[in-house]
């Protein structure tokens, strides 16, 4: 789905991302964690070919049209420029599948309806998308990404600004995508969500991969102290893994 080989991004004299090599296979839901400035966004944008970079990315090597059918990208900045209807905005996800000037086909409509249902947006269909609340806008933009119906989804902090119920809904939607054989890579700040829902966690620290593996293995006391400078309560419970940050280590 995604192969990175020695991906390196330099901004002026400083290296923002150094020699990142990794492979994401089908069925994986990867949580990308790391403190502010660790290089999460840079990693994803460079992998997509949106940033000048050295090294190889399987996505950046694709022609633009093919890439648009291979990967859907949800940027961190949640832009909705015009007061277009929610369903019109979500339908933009179908652009890569539509020949120039073609109308939405029944298959497109089905994908749009499914995405709307997934994010619980039925009652918002005709509302102006940019007049919704921040969290609602985020859900609309996630639905757009789902409607693109690609084997791989990259999302930059998709859970930010969502209420707890919608955070869980979102993580379940992504987990369901992964269970259906697709792959999802999402940067997350909520370690608890990452621990509970992701199949794999990649921790970035100063532009390098600090740890990569199943949640229980990556979220160790040592890694949390080194990368995040925090202590946390990490446990396996009957309800699944739990990770609750506790204190800052000075």
């Amino acid at each position: 789905m995604l192969t990175l080989d020695a991906l390196t991004v330099a901004r002026g004299p400083c290296t923002v991302l150094a020699d990142v090599s990794l492979t994401v296979g089908a069925g994986e839901f990867v949580g990308l964690i790391g403190p502010n400035g660790a290089g999460k966004t840079t990693l994803m944008r460079a992998a997509l070919g949106l940033l000048p970079h050295r090294g190889q990315s399987s996505l950046a090597a694709m022609p633009a049209q093919a890439r648009a059918r291979a990967v859907a990208w949800m940027p961190q900045s949640r832009e909705i420029a015009w007061p277009v209807a929610v369903e019109t905005l979500i339908a933009l996800g179908r652009l890569p599948h539509l020949p120039r000037g073609a109308q939405l086909a029944p298959a497109d409509r089905a994908a749009i309806d499914a995405a709307i249902a997934r994010m619980g947006l039925e009652s918002f269909r005709t509302r102006a998308a940019n007049r919704l609340s921040g969290g609602e806008q985020a859900r609309v933009l996630i639905a757009r990404v789902l409607a693109q119906d690609t084997p791989l989804i990259l999302a930059d902090e998709p859970a930010a600004g969502l209420d707890p119920a919608h955070q869980i809904t979102l993580m379940r939607a992504f987990a369901a995508e992964a269970a259906a054989g697709r792959s999802v890579v999402a940067s997350l700040h909520d370690l608890g969500l990452a621990a509970r829902h992701c199949t794999r966690i990649i921790a970035l620290h100063r532009g390098r991969v600090a740890a990569d593996g199943p949640p229980a293995q990556v979220l160790s006391a040592g890694l949390l102290a080194e990368v995040f400078h925090i202590t946390a309560h990490v446990a396996q419970t009957p309800h699944g893994p739990v990770c609750q940050p506790l204190e800052v280590i000075r």
Partner: peptide, 20 residues
């Protein structure tokens, strides 16, 4: 038209929707 529609979502998103 198509490119401008995609730009509603911002430059990054438009580019990953296949717009040059």
């Amino acid at each position: 038209g198509r490119g401008l529609d995609a730009l509603t979502l911002g430059e990054d998103a438009a580019e990953t929707l296949g717009i040059s």
